[in-house]
Every structure is written in structure tokens, then in C-alpha cells.
Design a protein around this nucleic acid. Structure first.
Lengths: 109, 109
DNA sequence: CTCTATCGTATGATTTATCTTACGACTGGC
DNA sequence: GCCAGTCGTAAGATAAATCATACGATAGAG
């Protein structure tokens, strides 16, 4: 179970500081650290939910026995989150960019 | 969200007393009552998990937050799929693009 | 080199979840 | 009638989560 260890791994993979995830889930960075270190176990359900959402993993992936996602999927999920804050118009631009990248990659290799 | 209300309904449906579910999830009956009455919100994740298991519902059914996909989330999911076919390098570029868009939107209003 | 910001760490304060205990209302058995 | 048990309710105590703050180390800007 060790939520602390998972939390630490997820944070390392996403390359964020304690403060960054603390801000994202609206909690003190001290508490994030305490959770990672195991000085605090049994976080509230609400906090677990926020953490899972922020890291783009399911609650089972954060707490349960499910395997941890690799760096690649974390990057994708982080982008995914960023998309939500964009306007539909901007998202359309992003989508075109991706299509262009795909075509370029196809022809190159 | 009102976990208390859900809890009460589930308990009524199962016809159990406060003490019965308290025993089942290994917690005091007082606390079950406090949760139902809303005198305590934000139970620990572990407790929520036990309660869901005891009542035979999923955590989502206990806490309740079913999200029907709208047009926006559909667009996002489409982009998400596109991301998977990109190289890590290209994805990093996409991410920067999104960040730039976010900043522009922030400053604009 | 110095100043400043940010990193992880850590401690003591505060808030909140959770527990212990007890109450009055209501039952069923004697 | 009374006694014992269980019900939901509630207040007060305790434990634990969460916070506010500060420290030394490190890295970058000037």
C-alpha cells in the first residue's frame, strides 16, 4: 500500500517539486512531504482524489496494487491536464500541430 | 458530494444499525453517526474504502461523481490519443505550446 | 562573491477526525 | 411493574491530519 512511496515516485517522474504538487492540490507542501516520508498515513479521501487527479492516475494506481505508470504516460497525462485549461480554439491548434508532427514523422522514418 | 446522506441511505436499505456497520468497518458507531449527520466530513481514504466494500458499492457510487462526457472532454480525449503516437521530444514541444497558450490567456483575462 | 529564490527537511501549533462514554427512548422478557 | 439490551444522539477527550513557519543547502542572477 505505502502511499508515500508511490507519491514520491509519481512526483519524481513528473519532475515536480513538493511545492508544485502542494499548490496543485491545495495543501501545504509540508503535508505532502509528511505523506511521502510516512510521517502521516491515512490521508483524507478528498486529498487522495485530488492527488490522483493531479498525477493523472486512478485512485487504484495511487493507493492500490496497480502498477505505476511509466514516465511516458505521465508526460502524456500532464499534457492532458494542460489541455483542459485551454479554449476549444486553442485545443484545435494543438490538434493540428500534433497531426503535422505525425505526418513529418511518417515521412522521415 | 454529501457522503453522509449516501451513507444513511445505504444503511437504511441494508437495514443495519449504526453499531452493525461500525463493527463491520472497525470504527466507532459515533463516528458513523457523525458522518451521516455531516458533523464530520472528509473521512480518511481507508475508511471510505471499507465502507464501500461493506455496502458492496464502488467508491464512486458511495461518494458519487459520475461524469457524463460532453463535447469538450471528447475533443480532449481525441487529442490525448494523438499524443501517444508522438515522440517524447515532440510531446515536450506540445507541452510548451500549451503553456504559452495558458499564459497568453491568463494575461488576456 | 553576494543576494535571492527554491529545494527538501523538520518542529511545534492548530484543526479535525475519531473515540469514549453516557444519556433518554424504546423494546422484549420476567 | 421493572430490568436488561439496543437504538440514535450527543458532549467531551484523545489522536492524528494538516498547517505555519523556519532552517541549512544549493543554484542562478547580478
Amino acid at each position: 500500500m505505502q502511499i508515500g512511496e508511490r507519491l514520491f515516485n509519481l512526483r519524481q517522474k513528473s519532475g515536480e517539486s513538493l511545492q508544485a504538487v502542494a499548490d496543485a492540490v491545495e495543501i501545504s507542501k509540508a503535508h505532502i512531504w509528511e505523506l511521502e516520508k510516512g510521517h502521516s498515513k491515512n490521508p483524507s479521501f478528498e486529498l487522495v482524489r485530488k492527488l490522483a487527479k493531479h498525477f493523472g492516475v486512478t485512485i487504484d494506481e495511487l493507493i492500490g496494487e496497480a502498477a505505476e505508470p511509466n514516465a511516458e504516460t505521465i508526460q502524456i497525462k500532464r499534457i492532458h491536464r494542460g489541455l483542459e485549461s485551454l479554449s476549444e480554439r486553442d485545443r484545435a491548434i494543438v490538434e493540428e500541430t500534433i497531426h503535422a508532427m505525425q505526418k513529418r514523422t511518417e515521412s522521415t522514418g
